[in-house]
């Protein structure tokens, strides 16, 4: 048996619906035989009648409704059709879900699934990575699984958390990643993972960029340069300890993110390492992000807009040469 990243997300939801009667799925086109624009809920409506509900194209009201249900004791999972459209629901997510516990002492356990990131031909409004915006605001947990195993266990863990969780699932990984079986073990949300040990440079990244970083590390290894790759797994909270420990081993830091360059996760990591681990650095910390333009449609442009193994390798050489 083999299971894809997308199937792991479906299986996690099936598991949650089976094990917890408070769980329901709320989103556009998630119900019926259709089972979602990406089929992440395929077959679930038939298996769990009344608990996989189609909604109107109303992202703001979808999240608002989920907030009310969560405050009433349910565990809603909202599927955004694309992460990009969650901008319509920003007000509910940031101002209502994110402030609820602080203001009222009432937990707001919603999980919002964001099909995120670029795939070729998807263009400016079906390719975005939104983790920086959600991490900036208080009150939210933001996760970005990079593996089939994490896609499964982190979604189950997300729904168990008593606070709002933004679950950024990468569309490029949906079909490209396969595992032999669903995982038996799990690393908790909030912990980063060293996915490849090294001694010369730490690449800290998350989501689909983990795989670009791994390709670079493999390529450099042939020349005797050992890159350590840290998969953050969760963007907020950010596992600063694991990052600092890695930089302590390598003395060099390169952060890679697929989202836009101003601020965001990569800037946050550089800031923390510079503030808390300046003495660990043998070279200036570096970062690489997508370009500061909307995400282009044409594959020739798209592949240059986001960081890729080639641009990451070039940046890594700069940091290593310092």
């Amino acid at each position: 048996m083999s299971i894809t990243y997308l199937e792991a997300i479906r299986e996690a939801q099936a598991h949650l619906l089976r094990e917890d009667e408070r769980v329901f799925i709320y989103g556009q086109d998630v119900s019926g035989k259709f089972g979602g624009a990406f089929k992440a809920t395929k077959g679930l409506a038939a298996e769990f009648p009344g608990r996989v509900l189609n909604t109107p194209i109303s992202e703001d009201a979808m999240v608002g409704t989920a907030i009310g249900a969560a405050m009433e004791g349910m565990r809603p999972i909202v599927e955004m059709q694309f992460a990009d459209f969650s901008s319509v629901a920003l007000n509910q997510i940031l101002n209502n879900a994110g402030t609820q516990y602080w203001r009222t002492n009432i937990p707001c356990p919603i999980t919002v699934r964001l099909p995120s990131g670029g795939t070729k031909g998807s263009g400016p409004f079906h390719s975005q990575s939104m983790e920086a915006i959600y991490s900036h605001y208080p009150g939210l947990v933001v996760v970005a699984p990079a593996t089939v195993e994490d896609a499964y266990t982190m979604l189950i863990d997300a729904v168990a958390i008593d606070d709002p969780v933004i679950y950024c699932e990468h569309k490029y990984l949906y079909y490209h990643l396969k595992a032999d079986a669903l995982p038996k073990d799990r690393l908790p949300i909030g912990k980063a993972r060293i996915v490849r040990p090294g001694r010369d440079l730490s690449i800290v990244t998350y989501s689909a960029m983990v795989h670009e970083a791994l390709a670079v590390a493999k390529q450099f290894s042939a020349d005797g340069i050992e890159i350590e790759v840290v998969d953050l797994r969760s963007v907020k909270p950010l596992d600063t300890d694991t990052v600092l420990a890695s930089v302590a081993r390598t003395g060099r830091l390169l952060c890679v993110g697929e989202s836009f360059p101003w601020g965001g996760a990569t800037a946050e990591i550089v800031a923390r390492v510079a503030t808390e681990g300046f003495h660990l650095l043998d070279a200036a910390p570096a970062r690489i992000n997508a370009k500061d333009t909307p995400i282009p449609y044409h594959p020739n442009l798209w592949s240059e807009h986001r960081p890729n193994a080639k641009s990451i390798a070039a940046k890594a050489r700069q940091v290593l040469a310092e």
Binding site: F24, G50, D60, A61, M62, V63, G64, T65, A66, I67, G68, A69, A70, M71, E72, G73, M74, P76, N91, Q92, N95, N96, T99, Q100, R103, T104
Partner: peptide, 22 residues
């Protein structure tokens, strides 16, 4: 507890009612 953004509480009420029915 309302937020200042007008109309935002309408779906929250809907969610409370939906959950009660569930």
């Amino acid at each position: 507890a309302m937020i200042s953004h007008l109309g935002a509480m309408i779906p929250v009420v809907v969610g409370k009612l939906l959950a009660k029915r569930m």
